[in-house]
Amino acid sequence: MTALPPTRASIDAGRARAAFARYRVMAFVTGGMLLLLTLEMVLKYVFHAGGVDAAGDPEPVIGSWVAFAHGWIYVVYLVTVFDLWSRMRWGASRILVMVAAGVVPVLSFVIEPRAARWVDTDLRAAQA
């Protein structure tokens, strides 16, 4: 057995790079939206900056659309993650990290350059 699985040879480098480009855009958008959502949550639930309604529930500050938008942007992000991950034929641990990066604040900005290195390394290995 070689160190690298033999299926690496069947990776389509062009498509994989395109998938990475899509993932990268969504990683930035999701990361930015998540920071906005975190800010909203802190303002709403910690500081009650928007006040509370008649039933005592905190009111939104920036707007309830933030959580709504993040949810759907995250769905799109997951699609790009799955696409990239399956084209690169990565293992389970890498997709778990990338899935987590969309919901843990700041993590997407840390993982995105790391994913870029994964792509470079694996594509070079596949061509060698």
């Binding site: 769905v75 997951l78 799955f82 991950w85 399956s86 389970a92």
Partner: peptide
């Protein structure tokens, strides 16, 4: 309602990941 749909999408995502693995 939208959140409920999203959770179901995430559930389907987990299954898709396994099939691909």
């Amino acid at each position: 309602l939208a959140y409920a749909v999203q959770w179901w999408i995430f559930g389907g995502f987990a299954v898709a990941v396994w099939l691909r693995l």
